[in-house]
Simulated scan of single mutants.
Amino acid sequence: MDWLRAAFAIVFTLGLFIISLLVHELGHTVAVWGMMGWDKVKVISAGSVSFFRHGKLRLGILPTWGYVLYAEDEATPEMRRIIAVAGPMASLMLAGVFSLLHIVIQAKGWSEAMYAMALANYAICGFNLIPIPPLDGWKVVETYLPSLGILLTRESRAKLYQWGTIIVVVGSCLYVAIVGPYHR
């Protein structure tokens, strides 16, 4: 019976992480929808290895990555900044909800799970504000580059995002390898 509880805990935790990624991406989506219209949202994806697809929504089984594709070329730099920051702000609000649930729920195990999810969402918020492509912090910085005389072509932007993704993944793995997954 212990294996059943462990399996449930793993599936439940993965589900909470997918929900956390989805809320982050829905923050971006709501900003696009509010400023540009629903038709400008192309794809909302949370997690990798998609197991659910419906309309514009894609959900993955692994809580590793998320994104929103929208008509970015039609957005002003100000719109792009708001859209970029909306995801981390949604994560911050969800972290607050999990923090409140941690305080309210007194059941051992569940309270700790809510605390862990609060920390995870604070981390999602902060991590995404780092100015490395393709993170949200970079998307804000990127909107200021033309005013500094730096114009990125589609090819150079794609290359920056490709290398940035490698840096983020390798850096994250190194951090976990050096510090450990449960550093306090």
Rank of each mutant, 00 (worst) to 15 (best):
D2Q: 13
D2E: 14
W3S: 09
W3A: 05
W3K: 05
W3Q: 08
L4F: 15
L4S: 13
L4D: 10
I10F: 15
I10L: 15
V11N: 01
G15W: 03
G15E: 00
I18L: 06
L21P: 02
V23H: 01
H24S: 05
E25I: 02
L26Y: 13
H28I: 03
T29I: 09
T29R: 09
A31K: 07
W33R: 15
W33M: 13
G34I: 09
M36E: 11
G37E: 14
D39M: 09
K42V: 13
K42H: 15
V43H: 12
I44S: 09
S45Y: 02
G47Q: 01
F52E: 00
F52V: 07
R53C: 03
G55P: 08
K56S: 10
K56N: 11
L57E: 08
R58M: 07
R58Y: 05
R58I: 08
L59N: 04
G60V: 05
I61V: 15
T64M: 15
W65Y: 14
Y67K: 03
L69P: 01
E74I: 04
M79S: 14
M79Y: 12
R80T: 10
I83T: 11
A84L: 06
A86Q: 03
A90P: 06
M93C: 12
L94T: 02
G96C: 12
F98K: 03
L100I: 11
L101V: 09
I103G: 04
Q106T: 11
Q106C: 00
G109L: 01
E112W: 06
M114W: 12
A120G: 02
A123K: 04
I124G: 01
C125Y: 08
I130A: 08
I132G: 02
L135W: 05
D136K: 06
V141H: 08
E142Q: 14
Y144M: 10
L145V: 02
L145Y: 02
P146M: 13
S147H: 08
